[in-house]
């Protein structure tokens, strides 16, 4: 009985929390006359895919989609790649000043982006990376790398060092031992943290406003934000684009959810 009550309370509360998402998908697949109908029509009378089609076939949106994909994958690569090396060193070597460095990285993790937008704006122009995807990748990676280092270090700490030692006794070099033994074992951790970094880069908005001006470099978040500029809002297109932008992410997340939750909580609980 108590269990039923708990489940019921959770489901009702979750229904309230997820209503906006349902509304989004709902508005993407129904004609505008039904969405803005008053009183609201809860049950769809007509389902259409034309809004998705028009949003996906739009050339500019395709450009934004490509930019977001490149941005998210590159940020993932830079941040987890460099982050893994550093995490490995912090975990396996007793470095003088290592603790201070780790705490410094924790401090960097807490710096809000807003404090950096003004210098980024100037430095990007000075270094010739304004309105380029590499520029955007660098700043995104900088914001996700600290957390990647901390979580990966926690993950590598939990893997016994004897495994690498055994490989090195068998004649592997340190690099080979890491590549052939440690990295395969840390795949779940890398996947979890990678998903986290990917989502963060895909959803990034403020840095993109500061650093990009043209559709050739702007990610999808900017394309969405542009809708706020129009007086008359075409809710069908807006919600179709929102759905198309968020759905791949939701799918990636659902597939890798277990690893993400594991990665985040193992870092926090210790």
């Amino acid at each position: 009985m108590k269990q039923l009550v708990i489940a019921a309370v959770t489901i009702v509360a979750a229904a309230v929390m997820l209503a906006p998402i349902v509304l989004m998908v709902n508005a993407a697949v129904r004609p505008i006359t039904e969405i803005l109908a008053y009183p609201p029509k809860l049950i769809p009378q007509q389902i259409t895919h034309e809004h998705f089609a028009s949003v996906v076939l739009d050339g500019e949106n395709q450009l934004h989609f490509r930019n977001s994909t490149v941005l998210a994958f590159s940020s993932l690569l830079v941040s987890v790649g460099l982050g893994y090396l550093a995490a490995y060193a912090f975990s396996r070597f007793r470095l003088r000043g290592g603790r201070v460095m780790l705490l410094g990285i924790l401090g960097i993790l807490m710096i809000p982006r807003i404090l950096l937008i003004i210098p980024y704006f100037r430095l990007a122009a000075a270094f010739g990376v304004r309105d380029t995807i590499p520029g955007l990748v660098m700043v995104n990676a900088a914001f996700t790398m600290p957390i990647a280092i901390w979580l990966l270090k926690g993950y590598i700490d939990s893997i016994p060092v004897e495994l690498e030692e055994a490989a090195m006794i068998d004649g592997c070099s340190r690099l080979q031992a890491v590549w052939r033994v440690l990295i395969p074992i840390s795949v779940p951790g890398i996947v979890g943290i990678g998903t986290f970094v990917f989502i963060a880069a895909w959803n990034e908005y403020i840095l993109a406003i500061i650093l990009t001006d043209t559709p050739a470099t702007q990610p999808l978040t900017i394309a969405l934000a542009k809708f706020f500029g129009y007086v008359a809002r075409d809710w069908n297109s807006i919600m179709a684009l929102s759905t198309v932008t968020s759905l791949p992410l939701a799918l990636i997340f659902i597939v890798f959810q277990r690893y993400v939750v594991q990665g985040m909580t193992s870092g926090a609980v210790k």
Binding site: I21, Y205, T221, L224, A225, S246, L249, A250, F253, Q257
Partner: peptide
Amino acid sequence: MRGLLILPWVFSTPASALMWAL
């Protein structure tokens, strides 16, 4: 339910701002 309840975290601020505007 846990998976469903984490979902809002996957949405970007512009996407959720638009959702809530509607």
